[in-house]
Amino acid sequence: MSNLQTLQQVAQTRRSIYSLNSQLPVAKEEVVKLVEHAILHTPSAFNSQSSRAIVLFGQEHHKLWQITEDTLRDIVNDDEKFVPTKQKIDSFKAGAGTVLFFEDDSVVKHLQSQFAMYADKFPSWSDHASGMHQYAVWTGLASLNIGANLQHYNPVIDKKVASTWDVDSNWTLVAQMVFGGIEQAAGDKSFEPIEKRLKVFG
């Protein structure tokens, strides 16, 4: 089997897994190494290296989703309407951990001041870098047989997250990736015809 085949198979394995448990098939140190590798080796425009991450396990992971639940409950302020949200957050709590993805705005602003011609592009390029980091971690987790799903409860939880984990004021929360043991695999995935999505010339 070629390295390309292996890479493609892992990419195909990566899915949004919502039914998770707290039992990881590897030591949590392996997850940390995986995130470290993504932070070090995922590309970014102008080699900006603007992406940041925090990995939460166990009670710290639970704390994040309790913060999210409490914040959203204050917004919804209706117990009956809150039931579906509560069920969703409980499914996140059932996982083993969460990776918080951030972008360092100070890096982006510095590049904007250095390269004025591209100043309006750097925020978009920062988003691109974050997306690649998320995909790198997500695919890496799939290679370890760890399920994951990606959430975006920012900006409503940003301030509380920042104060709870003493986050640098220049870091902006971009996404939250819940991970854990796979309790139930994802269902079948449908695909748009490739002919509608890819053109080849020459």
Rank of each mutant, 00 (worst) to 15 (best):
L4G: 00
L4K: 11
Q5L: 07
L7V: 05
Q8N: 13
V10F: 08
V10Q: 09
Q12I: 10
L20Q: 04
N21E: 06
Q23K: 14
Q23T: 13
L24D: 07
P25M: 08
P25H: 05
P25S: 04
P25V: 03
K28Y: 10
E29V: 03
V31G: 09
V32R: 11
V32M: 07
V32C: 00
K33F: 04
L34S: 01
I39P: 00
L40Y: 09
L40V: 09
H41Q: 11
P43T: 03
S44F: 08
S48W: 07
S50H: 01
S50Y: 00
A53D: 07
I54C: 05
F57V: 06
G58E: 07
Q59G: 05
K63C: 13
K63F: 06
L64I: 12
Q66V: 13
I67N: 10
T68N: 11
E69L: 14
D70N: 14
L72P: 00
N77V: 02
E80L: 13
F82P: 03
F82R: 01
T85I: 13
T85C: 08
T85D: 04
Q87A: 12
G95F: 06
A96R: 01
T98E: 08
V99G: 01
V99C: 00
F101D: 04
D104C: 02
V107I: 15
H110D: 14
Q112K: 05
F115P: 01
A119W: 08
A119I: 08
D120S: 11
K121A: 06
P123I: 02
A129W: 12
A129G: 06
S130N: 14
G131K: 12
Q134A: 09
A136S: 15
W138H: 04
T139H: 03
T139W: 02
L141N: 02
L144A: 00
N145Y: 04
G147L: 09
A148N: 08
H152G: 01
Y153V: 13
Y153T: 10
N154D: 11
T172V: 11
Q176K: 00
V178F: 03
G180F: 04
G180S: 08
I182P: 05
Q184I: 05
A186L: 09
K189P: 11
K189N: 07
S190E: 15
P193E: 13
P193A: 13
R197K: 15
R197P: 03
K199R: 14
F201M: 10
